[in-house]
Design a protein around this nucleic acid. Structure first.
Lengths: 341, 341
DNA sequence: AACGATGAGGGAATCGGTTGCACAACGGTA
DNA sequence: TACCGTTGTGCAACCGATTCCCTCATCGTT
């Protein structure tokens, strides 16, 4: 298969290996390896520089597969998200991938579709590919795969959602929920509904807690509409809202997706936003600012969260196991919220 | 570092290797390897089954890094997309990843942000990680990285967009553009504008050609508004459209993103859709059906395109280099288009 | 009874790096 | 001058599979 002449020169087209560089430079493989490794003392030495030039000259590119095998690590983190077609998750993943790159790692993504079975399967697949750690935004309050990771002692960090003792980097959902609700209260609203989001996600629970904090503070009752994170369920929630009597004058949706679905449903039913109904979303996806009526929402610092997740994973030794880094969100007032008259 | 006793049994926690299985089964590594390889004759033999049971029993999981090194292939395809935060690209990637899985491959994604420089950099990164081939949706009419792949003889296939002689799996953009425009013509529109999309993308060019075909057929003039693929540029195009005199009664946008931006801009200016302006998008992203006025659009068979791309890459030997597989899109009439009265 | 075909299975090389250990050369210090 | 620390470098083992090349036993044929 691999045809090499006795002298270990190689046919055209085959990639040069470290041995070829060694041959060309008249030194041993070990020396070349050290000349190429910035961590090694030898790296900063004139002859190392010469070797690097020769390596460059013959078009040498190190084979990470071989290095990974010997080093017993891949310099790669697996990232498990529910789905990439959810803009929030795509944003998070892009940030996570670039945080990895900054720290000299690679990212490998897989999806769970919020199904525990698929989460487990794809999580194991990532581990099977020998990633050095896992970043997951798929945590569920019942544990599931996280639990398994904890038990097996696999390095991992949760992001966006938390569970148990795992290290985590999250937005302050409770604060965000409070901010959103507070904004509506400040505009004079007294009947404020919540599109709750799924009970398996700590993020949805946190936002709900913030919503309830604000209402309790104001001495007002909570009105909770069940939902998942999807646009469809936002539509359902919108229809449910219209059936309420008395109808709420404002609604806080667990995320922008459900807000979009809800807007779609209520506007189609002839309800004017924001005149007859104020709406606040969550996440500030790019679309939010570009809806026909721009959506008031909560902005989450994804860049910081993703960066912190990667940091926690890399500096695992430094951090206490149960470390949680929490980042404050901010309210972005736009067109879908209006003062009550 | 790795502490193993002379007998090659290993401490708790360390993963068992093929040697451990061999030891436990009383056979050689080669035999275990063959017992685990479904391609090998020996695989279907009672003792192979016994070995597999033992492997399972000791919790053996093959190390793909070692196998990749020896086999000189990674069973992984690199997928290069402009950005994952564009729902269309996220949809495509998810389909591509699952097509890879079906065929026993893995997918590794990277982004170009439609910048030739970053495309080249990340493309090389994927190649450096020793992927077996590349799927790219980033092709530009000027060539760029595709050109380099062609010259270096790297196995690759383009998707969604084409360039030169590279194999490709695409939607029939010309047909899609024709369908969209034809639909507007059939509704009686006579002044139909185009939000053109970037000139570097063959997809945008194809849709434009279809648009021009239909208008030529009807003996009507083209009205072309420049744009990229982004929502922002859709807003710009919307404002440009409003400035036109006489104002078009309909517009075909190169994709749903620009359509959303355009809708946002014109509705904010008080133009009623569809009564005063009909709009057709392209791609049928999930959001399209859930806009306050559901968007008429062209549905693209992403599943088929992604599957074909993977097939072309795997069966590269079978297909002629320049093979292009083209899939027909379909019109999805919804709320943003109305008959002229 | 001899022979070839077939299948099972072992030994060892191999993929392409990394790294522990050893040693030589050199400069500085006591 | 003897000794020691530093630096440069090579040898060889190693990571965990896969696969080529054999050997050996078994079985069916003529």
């Amino acid at each position: 298969m691999s045809e090499r002449t006795p002298e270990s020169t190689r046919e055209q087209g085959a990639r040069p290996t470290i041995s070829d560089v060694a041959l060309a430079a008249g030194v041993s493989k070990s020396t070349v390896s050290r000349a190429l490794n910035p961590e090694h003392r030898f790296f900063r030495s004139p002859s190392a520089a010469r070797i690097r030039e020769i390596a460059e000259g013959v078009g040498y590119e190190p084979n990470p597969v071989a290095a990974n095998l010997r080093r017993q690590q891949t310099n790669t983190f697996g990232v498990l998200v529910p789905r990439l077609t959810d803009t929030v998750m795509a944003m998070f993943y892009e940030e996570a991938a670039s945080a990895c790159t900054r720290r000299g790692y690679h990212a490998l993504v897989a999806t769970s579709h919020d199904e525990p079975e698929l989460e487990r399967e794809n999580g194991r697949m990532l581990l099977g590919r020998r990633v050095d750690g896992l970043i997951l935004t798929t945590a569920r309050t019942e544990g599931g795969f996280c639990q398994e990771l904890l038990e097996r002692g696999v390095p991992h960090v949760l992001a966006m959602r938390t569970f148990g003792d795992s290290a985590a980097a999250v937005g302050d959902d409770r604060l965000g929920g409070y901010l959103a609700t507070r904004h509506l209260l400040d505009l004079g609203h007294r009947r404020i509904a919540l599109v709750a989001g799924p009970a398996y996600a700590s993020s949805a629970l946190g936002r709900r807690a913030g919503y309830e904090d604000a209402l309790r503070e104001a001495g007002l009752p909570a009105v909770v509409l069940p939902s998942t994170f999807s646009m469809e369920s936002g539509e359902d929630a919108g229809r449910a809202l219209l059936a309420l009597d008395p109808r709420p004058t404002a609604v806080f949706a667990v995320n922008d997706n459900t807000a979009v679905g809800l807007l779609s449903a209520v506007q189609r039913a002839g309800v004017r936003v924001p005149e007859e109904l104020s709406v606040v979303g969550y996440n500030d996806i790019p679309l939010a600012a570009r809806l026909p009526v721009p959506l008031t929402t909560i902005r989450v610092p994804f860049t910081e969260i993703a960066g912190a997740a990667v940091d926690l994973l890399i500096d695992a030794g430094a951090g206490v196991p149960g470390t949680t880094r929490r980042f404050a969100p901010t309210l972005i007032p736009r067109g879908t919220t209006l003062r009550v008259r």
